[in-house]
Design a protein around this nucleic acid. Sequence first.
DNA 1: ATCGGTCTGTGCGATAGTGCACTTACGGGC
DNA 2: GCCCGTAAGTGCACTATCGCACAGACCGAT
Lengths: 242, 242
Amino acid sequence: MQSAPTLKQNHLLAALPGAVQDRLFPDLELVELPLGEVLYEPGEAVTQVYFPTNAIVSLLYVMEDGASAEISVVGNEGFVGVSLFMGGGSTTSRSVVQSAGWAFKLPGQRFMDECNRHSQMAELVLHYLQSLITQMAQTAVCNRHHSIDQQLCRWLLLSLDRLSDNNLVMTQELIANMLGVRREGVTAAAGRLHKLGVIEYSRGRITVLDRPQLEALSCECYSVVKKETDRLLPYLVPRKDG
Amino acid sequence: MQSAPTLKQNHLLAALPGAVQDRLFPDLELVELPLGEVLYEPGEAVTQVYFPTNAIVSLLYVMEDGASAEISVVGNEGFVGVSLFMGGGSTTSRSVVQSAGWAFKLPGQRFMDECNRHSQMAELVLHYLQSLITQMAQTAVCNRHHSIDQQLCRWLLLSLDRLSDNNLVMTQELIANMLGVRREGVTAAAGRLHKLGVIEYSRGRITVLDRPQLEALSCECYSVVKKETDRLLPYLVPRKDG
DNA sequence: ATCGGTCTGTGCGATAGTGCACTTACGGGC
DNA sequence: GCCCGTAAGTGCACTATCGCACAGACCGAT
């Protein structure tokens, strides 16, 4: 859409009062986030927060035996580094770039200063925190009760909502790691979606052809999270860039 | 231990500065929480917060088809009603008493006033929030990767940590609802634990006989949450009642 | 044009969990 | 002391997913 990302491409930043935006601007650094980059390892101190524009970051838990599971996903609707705000400084999960793109980086201290000074900022962050919690809770539910097919649909929709087009750059192996299932399971599920005309794909690229059907095939988990996020963060409605 | 619960039996309240405790005391109402009582339905406005002493409350998500899954558990280490603090006012999950007991009830407005006035209070709540998030994340992981046997162990340990003795009053059916599995699956798992001499039980009462073995049989999920909670809330170490 | 690596497709036995139907066993109230 | 409701145990066919072992298929680099 536009080659130079603007501050407004992150909905959380865009929702801040103009005065706060202006004050933060000099300290916001636009950085590129390549696929697979690890922003934070478990236990590592968070010193920067990241507001993605078109990048997507996954919060991934990696078990002792190497198996993994995605806890939640962060895109242009939020930011990476909530543990700084909560005071823990680190988390038990890894933050890894799941879809390459850009983000605004802000020094942690600067971020906290602004939160402490302006209740509007803190309030926004708290609302985002609740939407993040909702997503985590629903992930737990989905992991318990739904089939790989349904989870794949949910996952594609979550990604789609955070991108500007219908093209996802990601291998089935990567998706399998996120969902915490075998790659073969994703292959089978993707094959079924393809047969239904919902998606097409080849070698690390997936295109969604029929989003309405994708939503119909997904479990309730997607819409529950979507609705609750819209409720909690109503200012994140689509806006034109300034 | 003592028949009249004191404020200090909730670790979060106990960790507050004396002055704050004194000021809150008149507004804290000790209430009995019977098994199965629903504190909040999904979407219902939170107007009170509850600080359990010996009661345990589960945050339970109930799906459209009636199936359920426990998202997290709250006992004397925390409080029920975090969505008030975050500003959402309600959650997508149900808060239900999983183990009967007592709690201190505080009007929501009063709670928020205190949070806004005293950063120490807000800080404490934020730290608790992070430990809650950690628990949710680990629940998601556990749901994905671990067997019913392992999950039962984890679940028993989480409950045990929030009670004063080794006796849990709960049926296998209830546990099954929490774990989101069939009752028969819990029966089988409990039978195996019994055979190993770890627990004994009958008709809605479970006694843990060998806690170390229970921990050994549990997946890493329990200890991850335990360690992270201890790190985030170090003031919640065992204290004598005053 | 070929090669090598990555991505995707497929087959098959093993297994954990499900759904259902039923039995056994305990214990409080009459 | 007997009943009845609730709690717990059991058997069985069925399914989704796993673990592993390959086979094809595509792409870029040489």
